[in-house]
Nucleic acid binder design. Structure first.
Lengths: 226, 226
DNA sequence: GCTCCTAATTTAATCACTTGATTAAGTTAG
DNA sequence: CTAACTTAATCAAGTGATTAAATTAGGAGC
């Protein structure tokens, strides 16, 4: 789609291969995916995988670089804005807590939107597989994105609740928040049956955002919490 | 281990094959797992898979029957007790809500324990894979276990909050609760890095139960919700 | 603007190997 | 003795990787 400017032949080949590989790896997993199928889907010769990426593994990791770049493109502006507003918060007080909670909601809204948008593509499955037993490809994603995002969430949660950001409890609660969002993607089979949702539509995402916000505020809005 | 009473040779063979298959399928996934490796691990001939289970697929589904049976064995008593106590609840009032919330906490405590206990074995990965694109093997698990469990959770949540059990909101919140627990297993890579947990120990599980209960009570304890 | 040449890229063919399934011949237990 | 069970051997199909040969694009020289 946006490939008009890719200069050399090789660049184009690499690009179509990565896109095809994202699909096939996402669908079948690393082992079950065959390089021939990827090449056929990309409309190029199978040997080009070896030529351009060194082999199947190299292509796999290139796919993760690609995903990480796309996610970063999407989440970085939000993270930057949140961090900027974080600086301007009053040093203490109820308002500081309230604002931090609002920033937290903002991040998760973006996350829900991103997960929802990409849930049709194969990359949710890809990342999920890597979560189970991480290969070097996982580090690409964690170091650039997930880790930072989790840090930011934990930090905001600490401010919003008065917890210690370094505490185990605070990090657990941060992950639990993430779980409330992830479940609709990682437990897709159960979700689609229990909700009777065939596909995650825009309306469903809106409802998820709403319910998540309710949950967030019920848990942490100023007043009592640990 | 508990195989002293399995009568015929065939039964024993089936059993060791299923146990080996649970490991290998869990580790490698359906496609990447090889019947030869399973057979070698089980200490039997590869052709026995075809003989006893009809083929690789048949063995795979037998593994799920096995898992479902084990989970059922573990969760059924809890579900029964909860359902029994549910009957004895007062028809309305704050106490009814409080008790329902308590039952909810009880279920999740059992779930956290079960997930934690089995997280070392391969079956979390197995089920997770099936969640992504469910095969007939998934229905075995959903119909017997997950579906019922989700129904029960939704029902209790409805009582505890005054929501309508059939409403979309209530079902969403039920899944979100489950997500708070699942995340530590499905996002294992991120969890182990963020928490710096190498493995889910008994102490970690205790802390998870504690934090989950805090979250549950903060969200739904009597007073304001909906 | 043209040709020519070289390096980058692509192709088809082939390699050794593993896969799940099947078969016929064996072995065991009741 | 017979039916249940197990074995080793073999099958066709598909795997990732590699190779040498063919093709292509783009800059140098005129």
């Amino acid at each position: 789609m946006t490939r008009a400017d890719s200069s050399t032949r090789g660049d184009i080949t690499r690009e179509v291969l990565i896109e095809a590989a994202l699909d096939v790896f996402g669908h079948d997993g690393f082992d079950a995916a065959s390089t021939r199928r990827i090449a056929r889907k990309a409309g190029v010769n199978q040997a080009l995988i070896g030529y351009h990426f060194g082999g199947k593994r190299g292509l796999y990791e290139a796919v993760f670089e690609h995903i990480a770049a796309q996610m970063q493109l999407r989440m970085e502006p939000v993270a930057l804005e949140v961090r900027a507003r974080l600086e301007q918060l009053p040093a203490t007080g109820t308002i500081r807590r309230q604002k931090a909670l609002e920033l937290l909601a903002q991040i998760f809204e973006a996350l829900i939107g991103m997960f929802g948008e990409y849930s049709a593509t194969g990359w949710v499955r890809l990342v999920l597989r890597e979560q189970q037993d991480p290969s070097p490809a996982f580090d690409i994603m964690y170091d650039r994105l997930m880790g930072r995002m989790l840090q930011l969430i934990t930090q905001l949660l600490a401010i919003a609740t008065g917890m210690d950001a370094a505490s185990e409890a605070c990090r657990i609660r941060a992950l639990m928040l993430l779980g409330q969002v992830l479940v609709f993607h990682v437990a897709r089979g159960s979700t689609s049956r229990h909700m009777q949702w065939q596909v995650l539509s825009e309306e469903h995402l809106t409802e998820l955002k709403k319910q998540f916000r309710l949950s967030l505020e019920a848990q942490f809005s100023t007043g009592a919490s640990e």
